[in-house]
Write a protein that binds this DNA or RNA. Structure first.
Lengths: 133, 133
DNA sequence: CTTGAAGTTGACGTTAACGTTAATGGTAAA
DNA sequence: TTTACCATTAACGTTAACGTCAACTTCAAG
């Protein structure tokens, strides 16, 4: 059995992810995607590519550039063969997790600051309203 | 009393923040900074500008572009005068807080996924080691 | 006085991440 | 067969965020 998975054209994906076909081709150019080709040379996308695109967009949202994203993809994608390989992958992965944790912490800090500022404003507003009457 | 606050030159700041003077001038160009000038035209930086730079770099770390950062700076900086103004500022600020919260949530999600993946790898590794003996 | 370090304002260069256009090919419908 | 649409590659264009360089000015030190 050849396992006929559902496939998508480039414009299918572009529509689904609300990006341009150019963007998809660009991602292939720089090695983020590697879709199969049909006999007439057209790109064939499957669930695998969709998953990758999800990852790419998540990454982008947090300031990772495409190069860094490529590293993360390798991590998620590269079913590591060989014990040493596996160990290195785990080590690298743990580093990345720590990076993410740091980012989370700082974002929480930012939010706290913003909230405190807003509280101050709120208080000012109340004072204002009291004076008004 | 004229309140003589400690001031810094452009290269002082560049050194402290480990950026180029060009970067600082650029930030002034696009309205992120507005340092006073001495009588001979040189930029004078104070604690105020340092605080702003902190904010800028935090923002950058999370994929906010400089334009978005400028909006946030206005929020933090614009001691809003007038009640209506104050209300609008609070409203806008609350939106921003929600955005940050969303980002935090998604980052947590990413981390969870990465951790799960690493757990799987860990298990594989253990299996490996068991077979080895 | 001049030399050197630090400042200033243009103005052009660079890189990442695409947008856009041109030239062309395959194929299904009219 | 012609039209229409979707695909392909190649190549040049664009924007943000600076880097780099040139041509000054200021000022303190020697």
């Amino acid at each position: 059995m050849v396992s006929k998975e559902k496939t998508y054209s480039i414009s299918d994906l572009a529509l689904q992810f609300d990006i341009s076909t150019r963007t998809i081709r660009y991602y292939e150019e720089i090695g983020l995607l590697a879709p199969k080709r049909s006999n007439n040379g057209r790109r064939i996308f499957t669930r695998k590519e969709k998953t990758r695109l999800q990852l790419i967009f998540r990454g982008k949202k947090y300031g990772f550039n495409l190069e860094e994203i490529r590293e993360m993809i390798q991590l998620f994608d590269q079913d590591p063969t060989g014990k040493r390989q596996l160990e290195k992958t785990i080590e690298y992965g743990q580093e990345k997790v720590e990076e993410v944790t740091q980012r989370i912490d700082e974002l929480v800090l930012i939010r706290t600051e913003m909230e405190r500022l807003l509280d101050d404003f709120q208080e000012q507003l109340i004072t204002w309203e009291d004076e008004e009457e």
